[in-house]
Amino acid sequence: MTDLTVNNQTLSSSVQTQEQRQQKVRRLLLAPSLITILIIGVLPLSVVLVYSFLEPGAFGGVKWNFSTNAYVQLFFEADIFDGSLSFTTAYLEIFWRSISLAVMATLGCVLVGFPTAYFIATQPPERRNIFLFLITIPFWTNLLIRTYAMLLILRDEGVINIGLQNIGIIDQAIPLLYTEFAVSLGLIYSFLPFMVLPIYSSMEKFDFRLLEAGFDLYANRLKVLWRIIIPIAKPGIAAGCILVFIPSLGAYITPEVLGGGKSMMIGNLIYSQFGAARNWPFGAAIALILMAVVLISLMVYMRRTGDKGGLSHG
């Protein structure tokens, strides 16, 4: 009897040590990645917060004095002579432009991406793989180079203008480049795969026999599309919108390469604060506001879809 109890004890203690060992292994294996991301990815974000409340240094960097100037500057302009503040819309315009361009890019991507994803999902499996591959390649190729390729097409001496001139539709180049149109086109072009892929993955397992049920119940093609296909593809469409909207809002390369001074976006504004303008606190403040907008849209998305981190699989 006593032997048995002793045995039980050793048994349970060995179970415990095994559990402890397992925990130790877990910690050891998780530590490198978590520490790297926490130090290089997360901690700097709080430093940004601190910096946004400091004064700019004369040659970049900061002076360690508390100041809310960076946030005030966003709305008000200080007079050079008497320092009095007057309301300015210069920066708000950039924000507004960024948001409207990002929304336009998102809409454009939905309009092109949804039919494309649907079309791919209705193809026989072999063809489906080829199409998917063709969509995936731009997804992973260099954004800068793709944007540059877009530049080649939109330039005054680009394929479109020269082509139109050769046909004789126009006799002078239409300025396509360095316009908001060029930027939104570039954004759509850049992020289209981000829309097609999640919509496709929500359509991939779609039971097309449901369409039979729809037609059987007197729905025509349009109604089948609106009442059955789109509602079922909705999670994919929502994920795609988030995946296009967020990078579009913070885009730097597209407006830098395709947009002119009149189509500056938040990303360019931030960059200039760390470059020519040498106003780090202001740059930090704008970055934080951008981050806040992104977090809010992510939260709205998660609230409405109940998706937890599902985006990362898109």
């Binding site: 449901l210 039979e212 059955i228």
Partner: peptide
């Protein structure tokens, strides 16, 4: 099909999941 006054009960039911 949508212009025929005929309805079907499908083998796999095909109820709209949403």
């Amino acid at each position: 099909p949508h212009k025929r006054s005929v309805n079907t009960v499908f083998q796999q039911y095909s109820l709209f999941p949403h």
